[in-house]
């Protein structure tokens, strides 16, 4: 929501997308308490995602996953200087109102939590705080942008330590963008229809060759090499959820993933930072999760 006071305005698209620009080339880490938040900041995280349980635990515990207790979010905000993000359920605009009143810097309307609305996402233009939303393909990304998302991330399959789905989603989104830049003007109508996305956004992509907002990777990233793979595929920043604090040595792994994300094309640096990190999170193969337990299919 744009508010103007004299010559200054808050909540504009430029201000919202601007924060997403500031996060580029960085690592956003899931943390469940202020100790973890400090470890993340010490390791060089550019932001933290405050949540009660990391996705791997949400997956294990089952039940309904909701917005975190404000007490925990406030404690994390007090413990670090970097931006603090938090998650709301898909369509749960009241959880988003609460997070905005807490002064959270970015809201993740996340499929990792149990959806509150099976038809509608949040009208994100209604808020001063920017939103990030997950997407599995370009159509989903553009629908979220049309609702006001300031940042898109791949959904991947959170809490698995397995990045195969994140790779699939990034390739799908970026591959379709590349194809659209080759399409003629008549074909763009068909693209909009096929993607179920606003024609104007498809036409804009044909012109600029890129998404309207930054594209980050999320879902299953567990190693420095995973982060660098996402970056080389075309992601601009990585979210690491369970991958850090479900591993053996969280702090050195966090620092290694930060360095790998910056020097993502430098194999010598990647080799150095990958050395001696101990055991990564165990991870889950996609064939071990049945269709109904997949988070990525949530969202419409």
């Amino acid at each position: 929501m744009v508010s103007t006071n004299g010559s200054s305005s808050t909540g504009t698209q430029r201000v919202k997308r601007g924060l997403a620009e500031m996060l580029k080339g960085g690592v956003i880490m899931d943390v469940v308490n202020s100790e973890q938040a400090k470890i993340a900041e010490d390791a060089g995280a550019c932001a933290v995602m405050a949540l009660e349980r990391v996705p791997a635990d949400i997956r294990r515990d089952g039940g309904v996953a909701r917005m975190s207790d404000p007490e925990m979010i406030i404690a994390i905000q007090a413990s670090v200087h970097i931006p603090v993000m938090a998650k709301v359920r898909i369509g749960h605009f009241v959880e988003a109102q609460i997070l905005q009143s807490l002064g959270v810097d970015f809201i993740d309307e996340s499929e990792v939590l149990t959806p509150a609305d099976e038809t509608h996402h949040i009208d994100k233009f209604d808020f001063t705080i920017p939103f990030v939303c997950g997407a599995t393909n370009l159509g989903e990304a553009l629908r979220r942008i049309s609702e006001g998302a300031a940042l898109i991330r791949s959904k991947g399959e959170a809490g698995t330590g397995n990045m195969v789905e994140a790779v699939r989603h990034l390739r799908s989104i970026l591959g379709d963008i590349r194809k659209i830049t080759q399409a003629d003007s008549a074909e763009l109508f068909e693209w909009a229809k096929r993607l179920q996305a606003p024609l104007s956004l498809v036409q804009e992509i044909a012109e600029t060759g890129k998404l309207q907002v930054p594209l980050f990777a999320a879902g299953g990233i567990a190693t420095p090499a995973d982060a660098a793979l996402a970056m080389q595929l075309g992601a601009e920043t990585v979210f690491v959820g369970s991958g850090i604090f479900k591993s053996e040595n969280a702090a050195p792994r966090a620092k290694a993933i930060v360095e790998a994300t910056t020097h993502f094309r430098d194999a010598a640096v990647l080799a150095r930072v990958s050395t001696g990190l101990g055991v990564a999170m165990t991870g889950i193969g996609m064939d071990e999760i049945n269709e109904t337990q997949r988070f990525a299919q949530r969202g419409w």
Partner: peptide, 23 residues
């Protein structure tokens, strides 16, 4: 915090700008 991030016109000897202030 981000909720206070804003844009505003600023005056400078280089010219007047739309300044975007993020945290």
């Amino acid at each position: 915090r981000q909720v206070d991030s804003f844009e505003a016109s600023i005056n400078s000897s280089v010219g007047d700008f739309q300044g975007v202030f993020i945290r």
